[in-house]
Design a protein around this nucleic acid. Structure first.
Length: 260
DNA sequence: CTCCATGTTTAGAA
DNA sequence: CTTCTAAACATGGA
């Protein structure tokens, strides 16, 4: 689930629920999800503080504490947030649990433990250390073309490369290329300036629409591939069928009739 | 039991 | 240096 639009939803969710409540207690599960911080240190650094604001960069969510430090969350393939009353049991697979002073709790949930939890002094520095490129929604047409300069990889691999642009994953790379009418396997050096500008506009439109629709497949326009990521499903825009193949070592869905 | 899964990292090969 | 592939991570769902 967690690509740029999903993490944008988590940010809105955190803004609505988790800001300005003192954290009375934090409980972190030990394990590899914690990056460069022990459970006890993380718990101590959160306890007694409140979140004051949030930021998103690519697939990362940052929550600022009132001492100026930031909690950094990456959601892997199965991560999400849940806010609930203290009378309810924490969800299964809760890896970090925050108990606020308003009798509510915030859980960071991750079934497969592929996400990451860290502390940082500054989100931009953190993103740079992780080798992340600019957030995909901050990239303008000129920057987009520059990122393509001299590259020869497949379009899909390029769109998903977090060191070039951060935020696009397997699902939205397919969605963008579907709307652009380009096969995911096509090579970057096949595209001219006009193609790149069109692809840039398509990327922005797809990501912005997905953020508006809170990354909910049910709410996406009828013309979207997202709810039909199954081999043999009806193409949403022609009489053809959705095909599945492997591109960039990932399952890839596309319409051979609409995309060239 | 087998295969697959919205991510990232790493090793090795071309 | 760039690109691609496979494997590993950890775990459940179909």
């Amino acid at each position: 689930m967690p690509e740029l639009p999903d993490v944008a939803r988590f940010k809105q969710y955190a803004d609505r629920t988790a800001l300005h409540h003192r954290i009375e207690k934090a409980k972190a599960e030990a394990g590899k999800m914690l990056k460069d911080v022990s459970p006890s240190t993380l718990e101590r650094r959160l306890r007694g503080h409140a979140f004051t604001q949030t930021r998103r960069h690519g697939k990362y969510l940052f929550l600022r504490l009132d001492d100026g430090s930031w909690l950094c969350l990456h959601f892997g393939m199965t991560g999400e947030l849940a806010y609930f009353d203290e009378s309810e049991a924490p969800p299964d697979y809760t890896r970090l649990l925050l108990k606020f002073d308003n009798h509510h709790r915030l859980a960071y949930i991750s079934r497969r433990k592929l996400g990451r939890i860290a502390l940082a002094d500054d989100p931009d520095e953190f993103a740079a250390d992780r080798g992340l490129g600019p957030d995909a929604l901050s990239v303008d047409a000129r920057r987009f073309r520059e990122l393509a300069q001299g590259r020869t990889s497949t379009l899909k691999a390029w769109l998903m490369d977090q060191s070039l642009m951060a935020g696009i994953g397997n699902v939205y790379a397919d969605e963008i290329l579907f709307h652009a009418g380009i096969l995911p396997r096509r090579k970057l050096d096949d595209l001219d300036k006009k193609d790149l500008d069109r692809l840039h506009r398509t990327m922005r439109r797809v990501l912005k629409t997905a953020v508006e629709k809170q990354a909910d497949p049910e709410k996406m326009p009828k013309s979207w591939l997202l709810p039909r990521r199954r081999k043999g499903a009806d193409c949403p825009r022609c009489k053809g069928r959705v095909e599945k193949s492997t591109v960039s070592s990932r399952s890839t869905y596309y319409c051979p009739a609409c995309q060239h």
